[in-house]
Design a binder for these strands. Structure first.
Lengths: 150, 150
DNA sequence: ATTGTTCTTGCATAAATATGCAAAAACATG
DNA sequence: CATGTTTTTGCATATTTATGCAAGAACAAT
């Protein structure tokens, strides 16, 4: 697994699960076939701008807003946190305020099996032309949004 | 110096200075005549929702929004008007302008079967991880949003 | 005042995170 | 390919943060 893939996996895990320590994250990554040490994760999180948030309720990791992170890339890639789907639609999580940008980016592709997108603040909903096409569109989006190639 | 005064001083210091560790904060407080241990500050920051933010640029403490979201729970109850669903998604109606708040509240739960929420002004769409899970998620949300229990 | 209760704090230490350094891997160039 | 350069990583450990426990302070009710 490449470093880039690991960084994205970290974003996705942090966006969708309660991660309370780097060691928990390490185990989560291991499940996905990525075996690295806590030291590497400490460096990754610094690079990604993922921090531990504490409150009376407990502590967990979360992405910071893009503005706070002096992000190197003005790329859609940096704004996308995770991509999930169920049988009939696809949900993309983004940094706060970025769903719209990512939605427009997808719109201009004019993929024949994407009939529409709806953007909230940090969540983007993508509707495939048919439930049958969901997987196919999901694959297309992961390529497009993460690796950033055709 | 009372605890309340100290908590206020911490907020003020964190908002105006680069605080990179609890020990730096401890020295800053000492200048103002407040001499406490690092252990106390760890507890204070948890209570205040002040967290350490890291990025390539370095690390420093800042107030966090997540704590505020958790504190919203009592309000969420009042803002929710209705919860309905069809086979594949759930729609929550809220007071005007409140859909976003309720959405964030649901997001931070990170329920494994909720892959995302999209908020309009007074309508919130919730996407379950699978159509099979819709009923289950619906039940969870009714508990969480209406009865308001854990 | 006495007793019981709750809150706050420091101490010691456990737990978690960050980092210097060297090795390995990836990349570039002659 | 051989050689020099940069990047990535693990190891060991330093640094930083969190917490169990007991003592002291604050408060209440009798």
């Amino acid at each position: 697994m490449t470093k880039q893939a690991r960084l994205f996996a970290i974003k996705e895990i942090v966006a969708t699960k309660q991660i309370v320590s780097q060691d928990v994250l390490r185990r989560e990554l291991k499940k996905r076939g990525c075996d690295v040490t806590q030291a590497t994760l400490s460096r990754d999180m610094k690079e990604l701008g993922v921090s531990r948030i504490v409150s009376s309720a407990g502590g967990q990791y979360a992405m910071q807003a893009l503005a706070e992170v002096q992000a190197l890339r003005p790329l859609v890639n940096a704004e996308v946190l995770s991509i999930d789907s169920n049988e009939g639609m696809i949900v993309v999580h983004t940094l706060p305020g970025c769903a719209n940008t990512v939605g427009e980016f997808i719109d201009v592709q004019k993929h024949p099996d994407v009939i529409g997108t709806v953007a909230g603040d940090n969540t983007l909903l993508i509707i495939p032309s048919s439930q049958r096409k969901t997987k196919q569109v999901l694959h297309f989006l992961k390529n497009k949004l993460i690796e950033g190639q055709e």
